[in-house]
């Protein structure tokens, strides 16, 4: 009996580990980087108060904090300090329109999904960036590339 239960549990676990779902299995996007979101304690009391967005930018593999990384949101750009830290205020709004992108030299950029920040006192977003390991390539000649492109296009 015990043996049967163990086998059954094992099978269930393997299914779970393999992501046995009816949904289509999607590959992750072009880089391994990502981010975490935590909402600070407390809520804003007034609509016209600003929301604080803050966090750190890390190297995904080494955990090293990345300085001078650029954070873009809406019309504004902010930079991480020498300690890899950033912090800025943004307008409190109900619409799901806040997102943040981080770009650092030699790392793949990461962009958040839309985040609902409405009435949050503080939103802490930490980014983990993967190294940009795409090689440098020499494309030989604009005209030749265009010609090849036509030849390579199966659908013409």
């Amino acid at each position: 009996m015990k043996k049967k239960i163990f086998i059954l549990l094992s099978i269930i676990s393997i299914f779970i580990l393999n992501g046995c779902s009816t949904k289509k299995q999607l590959m992750s996007t072009n880089n391994e980087g990502g981010y975490t979101i935590n909402f600070g304690v407390g809520k804003l009391k007034k609509d016209d108060e600003d929301v604080i967005i803050r966090g750190h930018v890390f190297d995904l593999k080494t955990g090293k904090l990345l300085s001078n990384a650029k954070l873009k949101t809406g019309c504004f750009e902010f930079r991480t300090t020498s300690d890899g830290e950033y912090s800025f205020r943004t307008r409190n709004r109900q619409e799901d329109s806040f997102f943040l992108e981080v770009i650092a030299f030699s790392y793949r950029a990461v962009e958040t999904k839309l985040v609902n920040i409405y009435n949050q006192k503080e939103v802490i977003i930490d980014f983990y960036l993967a190294k940009d390991d795409r090689p440098l390539i020499e494309c030989e000649g604009d005209e030749m590339i265009k010609k090849m492109q036509r030849e390579l296009n199966n659908l013409k």
């Binding site: 940009d132 390991d133 090689p135 020499e138």
Partner: peptide, 10 residues
């Protein structure tokens, strides 16, 4: 195709 050289960035 069309690439003559490729240098690693790491």
């Amino acid at each position: 195709y069309g690439v003559s050289g490729n240098t690693s960035t790491l």
